[in-house]
């Protein structure tokens, strides 16, 4: 088991390197850099001025070199101006060139500086990830159990009235995009159009003080969309298991229907949906963009939109690093969990 995890972590790091390099390469294409120079400096810069600006920032080095610097495996670029002042990525305001470290990249914990938020990328990501993490936690807490219950109830008697009605519910929710259900919820539960006004239509206040009133609608919107999908997967897996011969064995052993479902079918039926559930984590991380924007909840997805929209290269890179890591870690968990659910796959 230990060797297996080590091996997987190794592969994971390699994948992370490849993926971040792709993002790094794309964001560091010359047009992007030119735009960066102009937004940071002056929109009416001449081409020469742009080149000088980029040269001073070390942007004109080769991509692999820049990538290594960003990772923190190569000493970062320093520019010596004509007057002898030394500037560079690692030299923070108030530091002299001698004090500043030679290496400053992801490995050293320096994620760069966001041009939009005028703050360190590390700080921004930590706060925003925390906010989205909190949202995600509640979504998962509600979505996974309800989806599994829905799926199992529908799948245990294929074709029954219960199956038909629950399947209809699942298909409807998963077929309704978040921007439709979110808008509907706001209209029904928080606007004066219907007049229920049970919840707040904005989750801005939830960033400091989440409570039932301001947090329900965003959670519900995401839950409904994701639930239908997992429920369908669970149902499909459950109906298949219920026709298996060992279920007949259990039935003819005199096991009650209740126990057939709980003790014999459930574990086997959860094997397939488990991977899907783990895939929901990365989806939630970036897929919450719509809901976060709709409810004005400034989380990770919102940050991503801001970074992309404003050509904030360092922030964009930071966001992608986190996304890649989340995908890889959840997949690792999914593989390990799979081994535990399915005894036929044993690592030894």
């Amino acid at each position: 088991m230990g060797v297996f995890i080590l091996r997987r972590v190794g592969v994971m790091l390699l994948t992370a390197l490849c993926l971040t390099f792709v993002v790094f390469f794309m964001t560091n294409l010359y047009p992007n850099l030119e735009k960066l120079a102009k937004t940071q400096g002056n929109f009416r810069m001449s081409d020469e001025a742009v080149a000088t600006w980029l040269e001073r920032g070390g942007y004109l080095q080769s991509t692999p070199k820049k990538y290594l610097e960003w990772i923190g495996l190569a000493p970062s670029y320093r520019h010596v101006a004509e007057d002898g002042t030394v500037t560079g990525r690692c030299i923070q305001p108030g530091m002299t060139a001698e004090e500043a470290p030679r290496y400053c990249g992801i490995l050293q914990g320096y994620w760069g500086y966001s041009t939009v938020f005028r703050d360190e990328v590390g700080n921004i990501i930590a706060t925003r990830l925390g906010l989205t993490g909190y949202l995600m936690f509640w979504v998962m807490l509600i979505m996974v159990p309800s989806a599994l219950i829905l799926g199992v109830l529908a799948g245990m008697r294929e074709g029954s009235a219960m199956d038909r009605s629950l399947s209809t519910v699942a298909i409807t929710t998963t077929a309704t995009p978040e921007y439709v259900s979110g808008v509907l919820f706001i209209a029904i539960f928080s606007s004066s159009a219907v007049g229920l006004k049970w919840f707040k239509g904005t989750a801005t206040s939830a960033m400091e003080n989440p409570n039932f009133e301001n947090f329900t609608l965003p959670v519900l919107t995401i839950v409904l969309y994701g639930m239908g999908y997992i429920a369908r997967m669970t149902r499909a897996s459950m109906t298949e298991v219920m026709t298996a011969q060992y279920i007949r064995t259990a039935r003819l052993k005199g096991v009650s229907f209740h126990n057939i479902v709980l003790k014999h079918a459930l574990r086997n039926a959860l094997i397939a949906p488990f991977t899907v559930i783990m895939l929901q984590f990365p989806w939630l991380l970036n897929g919450v963009v719509i809901v976060e924007t709709l409810f004005n909840y400034k989380g990770f997805g919102w940050t991503l939109v801001q970074a992309a929209g404003n050509n904030d290269i360092e922030l964009l890179l930071g966001v992608s690093v986190v996304s890649v890591l989340v995908v890889l870690i959840t997949q690792l968990i999914s593989d390990i969990g799979y081994v535990y659910l399915n005894p036929r796959i044993r690592i030894s």
Partner: peptide, 24 residues
Amino acid sequence: LRDIRGNEIAMIYQEPMASLNPAM
């Protein structure tokens, strides 16, 4: 019927692998 199944009448099946629960 449940009382009788497995208790009074028991059955042995053709494919042993398929008739045992793989996760139990």
